[in-house]
Computed example of a mutant assay.
Amino acid sequence: MSTRLSLRIQERINRLTKSEQKLARVILESPTLIETHSATELANIADVSKATAARFFRALGYADFEEVKLQAREERNRTQPYSYSVSPQGGTVLGRKISEHLELELTNLTRTFEEMDPDALRQASRMIADAPRVWFLGL
C-alpha cells in the first residue's frame, strides 16, 4: 500500500532538486525511516544538508517534518496488524499462531517506547507509581 507521502513524492519527483531527489529515493526505499528517524538523520542518510531536508518536506506541501511524522504514524495505526503477517510462501495469513501475534505485539510495543520522549516516559511512570488507584481497561 502506498502512503500519502510516497504518492506526493512520486507526483513531484521530477520537480525536485537533485539533492531532494536523493532524499526522496531514501524515503521511497525505506518508508518506515520517517517514523524512526529525525529529519536531520534522514538528511545524513541521504547525504544531503538539513536545509535540503526542510525544503524537501515544504516542497511536498507539508508545514514541517513533524506533520510528515504524524501522518506516517496515523497511517500505520490505521493498518490492521494481520496485514503485516506473511506466510513463508509470501501470501497474507489471517489466522496466525499465538506466538506470531505476540511477536508482532512485542515489535509494536518496542516501536512505541523507542518513539517516546524519555522524560515523558519517566513522568508517566512516576504518575502511575504515585497514583492511589490505577485502572487497566482493555478492548
Rank of each mutant, 00 (worst) to 15 (best):
H37E: 11
A131Y: 11
S2I: 07
S99V: 15
A54L: 11
L109I: 14
K50F: 01
K50M: 02
T36R: 14
S125Q: 12
R4P: 01
K18E: 15
A54E: 09
R122M: 04
N108G: 00
G90Y: 05
S83N: 00
P132C: 08
S83F: 02
P31Q: 02
T112E: 10
V48G: 03
R78C: 01
N77K: 13
Y84N: 04
P31K: 02
K22W: 01
E66K: 08
L139T: 06
A124M: 05
R96C: 05
T79R: 14
F56S: 05
M127N: 15
R4G: 02
E74F: 14
Y62R: 01
F56L: 00
S85V: 11
K69Y: 09
K50Q: 09
K97S: 02
E105M: 02
T79E: 08
T40N: 05
A53M: 03
G95H: 15
E35G: 11
P31G: 01
I9R: 05
L137Y: 14
L33M: 06
L102A: 11
L23N: 07
R12K: 15
V48M: 07
D117P: 12
T110E: 13
T36M: 10
M116V: 13
F136V: 13
T112D: 08
T107I: 12
Q80G: 02
I34V: 14
K22F: 02
P31W: 03
T110I: 07
L109Y: 12
R58I: 05
T110L: 07
T40G: 06
E41C: 00
R133C: 06
A124W: 06
A129W: 13
